[in-house]
């Protein structure tokens, strides 16, 4: 039962690939100094209408559950990996 002979945990066999067809938009975000809300800009620097940007962290977001362009809120796809809990 030594772990050394079983370096890959069984749970890893359960991994499913994300959907590669789903777009992942990476808008530029700045903080509005007055309202303290995010202001989103497309790659050309044009403001994106509020609520029309994909949201949440894109760093490790599964594209299958990611909000594609036109969706507006991070879904319940992440836990402590994407943010600091302490």
């Amino acid at each position: 039962m030594s772990v050394a002979t079983h370096p890959v945990p069984w749970g890893v066999t359960r991994v499913t690939a994300f959907d590669p067809s789903a777009p992942v938009d990476v808008p530029h975000v700045e903080l509005d100094p007055v309202s303290q809300t995010g202001r989103y800009f497309d790659p050309a620097g044009r403001p994106i209408e509020a609520g029309r940007h994909g949201s949440g962290k894109v760093t490790s977001r599964p594209t299958k559950t990611a909000a594609p362009g036109g969706d507006k809120r991070a879904r319940d796809d992440d836990s402590t990996l994407d943010y600091a809990s302490d």
Partner: peptide
């Protein structure tokens, strides 16, 4: 985690049968 094809992947809740389990549970 990386999926078998190298793309990013994740683990959904999924069914398990005992025959699919092996010693790598010790991992």
């Amino acid at each position: 985690l990386p999926a078998a094809d190298g793309r990013a992947g994740m683990i959904w809740v999924g069914p398990v049968v005992s025959a699919s389990l092996d010693d790598s549970v010790a991992g």
